[in-house]
Design a protein around this nucleic acid. Structure first.
Lengths: 199, 199
DNA sequence: ATCCTTTTGACTGACTGTCGGTCAATGAAT
DNA sequence: ATTCATTGACCGACAGTCAGTCAAAAGGAT
C-alpha cells in the first residue's frame, strides 16, 4: 500500500483554499486551473476530490450552513419575543456582518440546484430544511407557551421557510429589500396571530 | 438602405422555433449551433438578435409570462372564494395541464437571474411582480369586501408572492410537493384571517 | 535489521473535444 | 454605391481525461 489520504479532509481543504476566490469572483469566473493553483495541486487532482466545479460550491455551502446554523441558534437566544426571534432568523443572511458574499454564493448554489441539482444536493437541502424547521418550531412553540401567539401558528413552519427562500431568491432576482420585506410580513402576520385581540 | 427586418418579431420567431428543444433539453444541453439550425439561420445571425444563450431563455419566459397571466386571470374567475382563488393562482404553475416543462424552464430562468441577472431581467421580474401583486390585491380586496377575510389581510400581498417564489424554487431544490405545501399554508392562513371567530 | 522488489494509491499536466462568440466576406435590396 | 442582413469558418477558452511518474509501504530474502 501507499499513502492514504483522508479524502473528506482534503476535499474540505481544497474547497477552503479557493473559497475566497469563489466568494469574490463567482463560479463562472473561476477556472479549474485557478482552483488547482490556489490549492497548490494539479488540475487532475481536483477531479480526484470533486465531480466538477459545481461540486466545489456544494462543499463550501455545506461548511457555510454549519456556521449559519450555529450563528442562528446563538442570535435567537439573544431575542426575547417570538417575533424578534423570527425576524433575526429570517434576516440573518442579510446582515452586513454576515458577509454579503456568502449570500451571493448561496444564491449561486441555489441556481446550481435549480439547473443541475444532484441527489446529494437534494438530500442536503432537505437536511437543512429539517434543521430549520426544528429551529422555527422551537421558536413558535415557545411563543405559544408564553401566550404570545395562538395555537394555529404551529402550521406556519413550512410557510415561513418557503417565504424565507423566496426572499433569498428575490433579493437578487427583483432586487427587493430583504429586511424590509421580512419586517413588513412579520408585522402583518403578528397582527393576525398575536393573542389578545378580536380580528 | 436594404432589407429592414422587424427585430422584435424575428427575435420572437427565433425563440419560438427553438422553444421545444429548450423545453425538452434545458439550456445546458442546447448549443448555439443547434438553435441556429432549428431556426434555419446561421450561427452569427443568432447574435444579431440575442446577447447570448441566456437571452433566448429570457425571451421565451417573457412570452410564457404573458400566457401565464392570461391563464391566471381566467382561472381565478372560475373560483368563488378568496381562498380558492389564491389556491388556483399559487398552484397554477404546478398543474399538470400547464406543462411541467414550462416550470422547468422558468426555474432555469430563475437560476440565470440568480447568477447573471441583467438589468433587463430585473426590470422584467419587477414588472411581473407588479402584475401579480395587482392580481393578488384584487383577490384579497374582494375577499375583504365580501366579508370573508379581515382587513389586515391586505398586508399579505408581498408575502404571498415570496411564498410562491419559495415554492417554485423548493419544488426543485428540495423536491417538496408544491400543491400540498400551498394547500397546507392556505389552510393555516385562513384559520387566522377568516372572519367570524376569536383568535 | 537492512536491502531490494513490488505494489498501489496519489498526483500530474499535456492533450483533446466542445462550444460560445467574432468578424471578414458575401448577398440583396434600393 | 451604399447600407443592412446574413453567414460560417475561425479562434480562444476551458472542462474534463488519461498515460505516465513518484513515493511510501509491504513483504520477502538474507
Amino acid at each position: 500500500m501507499a499513502i492514504i489520504v483522508n479524502k473528506e479532509e482534503k476535499r474540505r481543504a481544497i474547497a477552503q483554499s479557493c473559497s475566497e476566490l469563489l466568494l469574490e469572483n463567482g463560479i463562472d469566473n473561476l477556472t479549474i486551473a485557478q482552483i488547482a493553483q490556489s490549492a497548490g495541486i494539479g488540475k487532475g487532482t481536483v477531479y480526484e476530490y470533486f465531480e466538477n466545479k459545481e461540486d466545489i460550491v456544494f462543499e463550501i455551502i455545506t461548511l457555510f450552513m454549519i456556521e449559519f446554523e450555529r450563528r442562528a441558534l446563538e442570535q435567537i437566544q439573544s431575542a426575547a419575543s417570538a417575533k424578534e426571534k423570527l425576524q433575526l432568523f429570517l434576516g440573518l443572511m442579510f446582515e452586513d456582518e454576515f458577509d454579503r458574499r456568502h449570500l451571493g454564493l448561496y444564491q449561486e448554489y441555489l441556481a446550481i440546484s435549480l439547473v443541475q441539482g444532484t441527489p446529494q444536493m437534494v438530500e442536503f437541502s432537505l437536511l437543512c430544511r429539517e434543521k430549520f424547521a426544528h429551529i422555527l418550531g422551537d421558536i413558535l412553540e415557545l411563543g405559544i407557551a408564553k401566550g404570545e401567539i395562538c395555537e394555529a401558528s404551529r402550521g406556519l413552519i413550512s410557510a415561513l421557510m418557503l417565504f424565507g427562500r423566496g426572499v433569498v431568491v428575490d433579493s437578487k432576482v427583483t432586487g427587493i429589500e430583504a429586511k424590509a420585506e421580512i419586517a413588513q410580513f412579520l408585522d402583518t402576520l403578528f397582527e393576525l396571530i398575536k393573542i389578545g385581540e378580536v380580528k
